[in-house]
């Protein structure tokens, strides 16, 4: 078959940002997958709760402070996170570098708090089904924080390397920021369940 040229693409940019980039969509798809996972885990929590004669099962509700501090930390981290995303949009390399280092910190602190949070649940995963599901919820979310922190560290290294000043990298930074927002937002209903429903 012969080609009849009807369109010229040579003036198009060599990488699109935001919704023009396939990685943005893939990040959304992964958030949808993981969002379904969180929703399902919450449904299981509610299901087990509906079966139990008393809730929490044979345990006091978890202490508030560790989880609440962590929640506040996470919510606060959204501000610098959004800023990093903006700087990436403006291709401001210095600020992005600083921002990524800050975001790494703001990812590690919740992990430390999370370690305390586990001890303040007052139940082990193998005590009963209530223990199993709260450990599951917390574990699932911890994995998300952890993967995002690792991702942020790798990105930070990249942004200090010779590959840094590239639209593609700034796009990666923005996608990483979007994912962190997801990790924060996904935590809120979990927090409500683990700490709120256990006190009803």
């Amino acid at each position: 078959m012969k080609d009849r040229i009807v369109l010229d693409a040579s003036a198009l940019p060599m990488h699109g940002m935001g919704a023009a980039s396939p990685t943005w969509w893939a990040t959304c798809a992964f958030m949808l997958i993981e969002g379904s996972g969180f929703a399902l885990a919450l449904a299981v929590y509610l299901y087990l709760m509906s079966l139990a004669p008393s809730w929490p099962m044979e345990a006091p509700p978890p202490d508030l402070w560790a989880g609440t501090w962590l929640t506040l930390m996470l919510i606060a981290s959204v501000v610098p996170n959004v800023l990093v995303s903006r700087w990436a949009h403006r291709r401001d390399l210095r600020k992005v570098q600083v921002g990524l280092v800050v975001m790494t910190m703001l990812g590690i602190i919740p992990l430390v708090l999370r370690a305390f949070e586990f001890t303040k649940l007052h139940i082990r995963w193998d005590d009963n089904a209530y223990g199993s599901i709260v450990w599951m919820l917390l574990g699932l979310h911890t994995t998300h924080i952890l993967t995002d922190v690792v991702d942020t560290v790798v990105l930070a290294c990249l942004m200090f390397s010779r590959h840094a000043d590239n639209t593609r990298r700034y796009g990666d930074v923005q996608d990483n920021c979007m994912y962190w927002n997801f990790v924060v937002v996904a935590w809120l209903p979990l927090y409500g369940c683990i700490y709120g429903l256990a006190r009803l």
């Binding site: 078959m1 012969k2 080609d3 009849r4 040229i5 009807v6 369109l7 010229d8 693409a9 040579s10 003036a11 198009l12």
Partner: peptide
């Protein structure tokens, strides 16, 4: 049909 409309410039 023996022709295919296409994009160039890649």
């Amino acid at each position: 049909e023996n022709e295919l409309p296409v994009v160039a410039g890649l």
